[in-house]
């Protein structure tokens, strides 16, 4: 795992960002995701929106939206 990028995994796809640091809120905005319907997990820890992410971090984004009917 490289230390030069911030990696976000969402629905099986990997997104890489070169910013030195970025808040969770900003990351979700960049991916056009709503903080109301997503959870962000880093190292088995769920993060709130104002948590700071940095290069070398790898986060998993979980969509909470489900639907039908």
């Amino acid at each position: 795992m490289g230390d030069n990028v911030l990696r976000a995994i969402f629905r099986g796809k990997v997104y890489e960002f070169e910013e030195e640091k970025m808040k969770v809120r900003e990351l979700l905005k960049r991916l056009n995701l709503s903080p109301e319907s997503t959870l962000v997990v880093r190292d088995n820890e769920v993060l709130t929106e104002d948590e700071l992410l940095k290069r070398g971090d790898e986060v998993r984004i979980i969509s909470a939206i489900s639907g039908g009917s």
Partner: peptide, 29 residues
């Protein structure tokens, strides 16, 4: 909210299907 139920599942180690139903992807809901 959906986020709150998802968090409860996650914190309790309840494994669940994350994919939406293939028929509901374009659902109005």
């Amino acid at each position: 909210t959906e986020k709150e139920t998802a968090l409860y599942a996650l914190l309790n180690g309840i494994a669940y299907i994350e994919d939406e139903c293939p028929y509901s992807v374009d659902a109005t809901t």
